[in-house]
């Protein structure tokens, strides 16, 4: 069996997908030097779009999603299963696969949210004003 490839994106240029963007958000919004700690006078307050992507909080939604994923599991590998049940599982799989793309994770969802914000100007009012004014 082929082991999963170790993917290395030397050029972040290729990170156009949702998860790639999520990786970027994860890194540059939360880490790096905070310039406010150095500079106080000449900082300019500029509106930064609100991006709240990083927090993974286990909620009832998470639990229900895990449970549904467990429900979808094809257990034929671990126990005998009647044919009707298997057919039912396949049907379930077909239906739920669709929703999986939407709810797969916080990060992918966050990527979508970002695209929405860009795509729909009215969403920009959600932007949070961070004022940093000279003294």
């Amino acid at each position: 069996m082929q082991p999963p490839a170790v993917s290395k994106s030397a050029s972040p240029m290729s990170t156009g997908s949702g998860s790639g963007l999520a990786d970027v958000i994860d890194t540059i919004l939360d880490k790096g030097l905070v310039i406010d700690a150095y500079v106080s006078v000449s900082l300019i307050g500029i509106e930064i779009l609100t991006i709240n992507a990083r927090v993974v909080v286990a909620s009832v939604d998470t639990y229900l999603r895990f449970a549904e994923a467990a429900n979808r599991l094809d257990l034929t590998q671990t126990q005998g299963q009647g044919l009707p049940e298997m057919v039912e599982d396949l049907t379930h799989g077909a239906i739920t696969d669709k929703s999986r793309g939407v709810t797969q994770g916080v990060l992918e969802a966050a990527g979508d949210k970002l695209r929405e914000m860009v795509g729909e100007p009215q969403d920009r009012v959600r932007g949070q004003r961070r004022r940093r004014e000279g003294r």
Binding site: P12, M13, V24, I46, L49, L114, V118
Partner: peptide, 14 residues
């Protein structure tokens, strides 16, 4: 204009 579009974020990191 506000900063923080996907293009801005990717540009910063890239």
């Amino acid at each position: 204009r506000p900063l923080g579009t996907p293009g801005d974020l990717v540009a910063h990191e890239r």
